[in-house]
Amino acid sequence: MIDGYPLIPEELPAQFKAAMRRLAASVSIVVAKGDDGPVGIAATSITSLTADPPALLVCVNRTTSLHALLVPTAPLSINLLGRDQKMISAAFGGGAPREERFRIGEWVDGGNGLPSLAGAQANMECVIDAMLAYGTHSIVIARVLRARVSDGVDPLIYQDGGYL
């Protein structure tokens, strides 16, 4: 036992990754303010936290370019992708250099000084309320200040290394 927890079996990390590949998740683009303009990443680990106040949980790997920009009170733009926005997901998932990512898709100015993706399933303008470090990631609590929702519901879903 370590710190009151049983030792992790050697095969558990690989089994856990295999199990998580079976978990289907919607894809979002998370945007923060960088010194040289907006920085964005594709993310599947976003979930609602509470409706009062409206808030989300966003889990971000500490090795991403976005992570250093995440501090309490910093603005965030969270854009829930539609099924027809696979190219945007691929670009922000590392398929395009950082400086080219915002040239893919139609981006408009959001009220919090960050771009929002036109045609997304939903756009949310947020501010970071709190953060908690855990393992390789940080858990970000983002308070939603404004939300825009599209008419149709047709989310981009990612599972087992591909889109459904």
Rank of each mutant, 00 (worst) to 15 (best):
M1K: 12
D3I: 13
D3G: 10
D3N: 13
Y5T: 13
Y5V: 14
P6I: 12
L7M: 15
L7V: 14
P9C: 12
E10A: 15
E11F: 15
E11P: 03
A14C: 08
A14L: 15
A14E: 15
A14H: 14
Q15I: 15
F16C: 15
A19V: 15
M20V: 14
M20G: 15
M20W: 08
R21F: 14
R22P: 11
A24F: 04
A25R: 09
S26A: 10
V27E: 04
V27M: 00
I29C: 09
V30F: 10
K33N: 14
G34F: 11
G34V: 08
G37Y: 08
P38C: 12
V39H: 06
G40D: 08
I41D: 06
T44Y: 06
T44I: 14
T47W: 10
L49S: 03
T50G: 13
A51I: 09
A51D: 15
D52R: 15
P53S: 02
P53M: 01
P54A: 06
P54D: 02
L56W: 04
L57R: 05
V58M: 03
C59E: 06
V60K: 00
R62L: 15
R62H: 13
T64F: 11
A68E: 14
L70E: 11
L70A: 07
V71Y: 11
P75G: 08
I78Y: 02
L80W: 07
L80C: 01
L80P: 00
K86V: 03
K86P: 00
K86I: 13
K86W: 05
M87R: 12
S89C: 09
S89F: 02
A90H: 07
A90L: 02
A91F: 10
A91P: 00
A91N: 02
A91H: 00
A91W: 05
F92Y: 07
F92T: 04
G94H: 07
G95V: 07
G95I: 03
A96H: 01
P97C: 05
R98D: 04
E99Y: 09
F102L: 08
F102I: 04
R103G: 05
I104N: 05
G105K: 02
G105W: 01
E106Q: 12
W107Y: 13
V108M: 11
V108W: 07
G110Q: 07
G110K: 06
G111Q: 07
G113L: 09
L114A: 09
P115K: 10
S116H: 09
L117D: 01
A118M: 07
A120P: 00
A120E: 01
N123M: 11
N123H: 08
N123S: 10
V127A: 08
I128V: 11
I128W: 03
A130H: 11
A130F: 10
M131D: 07
M131Y: 09
M131R: 13
A133H: 13
H137V: 11
H137G: 04
V140F: 05
L145S: 06
L145M: 08
R146S: 03
A147R: 06
R148G: 03
S150K: 05
D151N: 09
G152S: 09
D154S: 12
L156N: 01
L156K: 02
I157H: 06
Y158I: 11
Q159W: 03
G161P: 12
G162F: 09
Y163T: 01
Y163V: 06
